[in-house]
């Protein structure tokens, strides 16, 4: 199988790592903690509707950090990214079309 051959070639190129990537993980942890502080702090500031926007934007950024640095979603194969995206896309279908009903009730 050609996929197997190329996989073998690719893994041969990867240099075996001998130590833990402590530094990069520490950076991600700091970023996550900073974002947590930011979201918790900002929600005590009255911003009106923007509180919701800020909170969920920060949540999305945190989730993206976990996905990229811990789950290596960008490093993997295309099929993995499609699988991950499909879940979100289909959830989007559920929300979008249901809310066409919910938001327009009584009109």
């Amino acid at each position: 199988m050609s996929a197997t051959a190329s996989l073998g070639a690719r893994s041969a190129k990867v240099k075996p790592m001998r130590s833990l990537p402590l530094r990069s993980h520490l950076m991600v942890w700091l970023a996550l903690m900073a974002l947590l502080a930011l979201t918790a702090g900002s929600s005590f500031v009255p911003l009106g509707t923007f509180n919701v926007v800020v909170n969920f934007t920060i949540a999305a950024i945190k989730a993206a950090l976990v996905l990229v640095f811990f789950m290596h979603v960008a490093r993997g194969e295309a099929a993995v990214r499609i699988a991950a995206a499909a879940g979100l896309l289909w959830l989007g279908f559920l929300f979008a079309l249901s809310f066409v009903d919910i938001l327009a009730r009584g009109h």
Binding site: W90, F93, L97, V100, D101, I102, L103, A104, R105, G106, H107
Partner: peptide
Amino acid sequence: GFLVWGHHMFVSGQSVYAGLVF
């Protein structure tokens, strides 16, 4: 096939707009 479920609900009391979309 995932985007058409609301056609089971045309008389259910869902909004007219949702009916049109589905």
